[in-house]
């Protein structure tokens, strides 16, 4: 349902010009990324807001590594399309997923 909606949105955004870059927030609370799965497009920015008293990271090994100190946030502007699983280097049981459309 949601997928279809996004596909329609994607189709519309192809027709319309130019697409606005969005900022999408992911909250970290009690060692969990929320929402755990995010769909975005190239040019969007993901902002991770760390509400924990612990440092975390949002990391894709060999690609990007965003350090998220306690109570702070970090951001990443998406430069390429594709789907990635990311995780926290300090607590590898914290996992997130990012789908980036062209």
């Amino acid at each position: 349902m949601r997928k279809r909606h996004l596909m329609v949105a994607a189709a519309l955004s192809l027709a319309a010009t130019p697409a606005w870059a969005e900022t999408i927030q992911v909250t970290i609370d009690k060692l969990a990324f929320s929402p755990a799965s995010v769909e975005a497009k190239v040019g969007d920015t993901i902002v991770w807001v760390n509400k924990d008293a612990f440092a975390h990271t949002a990391t894709v090994l060999g690609d990007w590594d965003i350090l998220l100190p306690p109570g702070k946030s970090g951001r990443l502007t998406l430069k390429k399309a594709g789907a990635v699983d990311y995780f926290c280097r300090f607590h590898p049981n914290m996992k997130g997923h990012l789908t980036v459309k062209p």
Binding site: K30, F54, F90, H91, P92, N93
Partner: peptide, 17 residues
């Protein structure tokens, strides 16, 4: 304690790595 459990589980995986 539940938050502590997630921390400890995370450390366990980190230590394994």
């Amino acid at each position: 304690l539940q938050t502590g459990l997630k921390i400890f589980q995370g450390h366990e995986q980190h230590a394994e790595h």
